[in-house]
Amino acid sequence: MSWKLDKNRPVCPQITEQICVKIASGEYGAGEKLPSVREVAVAAGVNPNTVQKSFEQLEQSGVIYSVRGSGNFVSDDITIAKQSANEIITNKTANYIEEMRNLGLDKEQILKYVEELIK
């Protein structure tokens, strides 16, 4: 469980996104219990209230559900998580491609750089 945060963006959406991606990638399986707010806060080095807010947002969008007194669980149906993760990743990749295109690179050049650096 590792958390890398961008210092120039708000923390809350970053935590929300990363949990979605972790669910989509199978790090947290469907129906599995998530670490507590405090555990995530300590591990990520962020404010517990922020993590709490992320969990609430995830619950509202149906990615997770909470059980009073026993914590937060990944929903049995993880399509929403997958969708969100897909959206996040697509957006980020699209942003990158656009930046590269703005620099005047074509498809081959972009792929070449990605190939070279991805190791």
């Binding site: 120039n8 923390v11 404010n47």
Partner: peptide, 14 residues
């Protein structure tokens, strides 16, 4: 902190 980052697009430190 999140408001600052949201409004300014930069870290509190910056």
């Amino acid at each position: 902190v999140d408001e600052i980052r949201e409004e300014n697009g930069k870290s509190v430190d910056a």
